[in-house]
């Protein structure tokens, strides 16, 4: 799996469906909780190095979508493929290439920063020594090397989020999911995360899907998916989505598309 992890960087792993090399493809995905339909026929694609903002109000279906992609529950219709691996049939291959930063804080506060990262590396089957090298690199990139030995409890909210990003990258995923990662963070921490993910997409070709309800986080260099009441209303590069909506800004485009006022 780990070898695949690096070799398959561009979808070229032996045995992988050849015609599909895209990092993430979602097709015809619907999901309901009893009567309530959370997602309706959702389809979109993420290319290599794409930084896609998944924009929607609270309750639009963003978390449901992430729960399905991370296999927290199984989807019953449509398909989710990571580098061609359908997550239902080949969860191991798919999940090995996926890194996730969850909406809620998921660090183990009883453990040190390093212990949290080692634990994650073990879950991905990494040998301890290699895990040590990788996690030091990731933690250095988020500027927290001097906090490695400290309990996660002593970190601020922004620092915890940075550790979570570092953790999501320890197994070198090619697709990164971030579910409202800036909620509750101050301006500086938010900017740091945005810049960090931008760098990951640009320099390492990681495909990132960043869920947010904050229109301000959607910059014109990104792609955007507007999700509203379980449906995708628009998808594409931000300037194109604005143009197609006959709007002058993303905020105006969002309001026009959804008929509601965004934040």
């Amino acid at each position: 799996m780990l070898d695949l992890n690096t070799e398959a960087a561009d979808g070229g792993a032996a045995g992988a469906p050849a015609r599909e090399a895209l990092p993430l493809v979602v097709e015809g995905l619907s999901h309901s909780f009893g009567e309530r339909q959370a997602l309706r026929e959702v389809s979109f694609k993420l290319g290599r190095g794409d930084r896609t903002m998944l924009l929607g109000l609270n309750g639009a279906g963003k978390t449901t979508l992430f729960s399905l992609i991370t296999r927290l529950y199984n989807h019953r219709s449509g398909s989710i493929r990571i580098f061609g691996w359908e997550i239902k049939q080949k969860p191991s291959e798919a999940l090995a290439r996926l890194g996730v930063v969850f909406q809620l804080a998921t660090l183990d506060l009883e453990l040190s920063v390093a212990q949290n990262l080692y634990y994650h590396a073990a879950l991905h089957g990494l040998p301890r020594r290699e895990a040590g090298v990788r996690l030091r690199r990731e933690i250095e990139r988020v500027g927290l090397t001097d906090r490695l030995r400290e309990h996660a409890r002593t970190l601020s909210g922004g620092q915890r989020r940075r550790v979570e990003i570092a953790r999501a990258l320890v197994h070198r995923p090619r697709v990164l999911l971030l579910d409202e990662p800036t909620v509750g963070l101050d301006v500086a921490s938010r900017q740091f995360l945005l810049d960090h993910v931008r760098m990951l997409c640009r320099e390492e070709g990681i495909a990132a899907l960043w869920a947010t309800h904050l229109i301000d986080e959607v910059d014109s260099a990104a792609r955007v998916i507007v999700l509203h009441r379980g449906r995708i209303l628009a998808e594409g590069p931000v300037p194109e989505v604005i143009r197609r909506a006959n709007a002058s800004s993303m905020r105006e485009a969002f309001d026009k598309l959804t008929g509601e006022r965004g934040e």
């Binding site: 799996m1 991370t70 296999r71 927290l72 969860p91 191991s92 291959e93 798919a94 999940l95 090995a96 996926l98 996730v100 969850f102 809620l104 804080a105 998921t106 660090l107 183990d108 994650h120 879950l123 991905h124 089957g125």
Partner: peptide, 20 residues
């Protein structure tokens, strides 16, 4: 705790769920 952090981080491991 399936909804909470520790189970979520556990379940994104590529190893089979039964094994986890």
């Amino acid at each position: 705790d399936r909804e909470t952090g520790s189970m979520r981080t556990l379940l994104v491991s590529p190893l089979p769920r039964w094994y986890l």
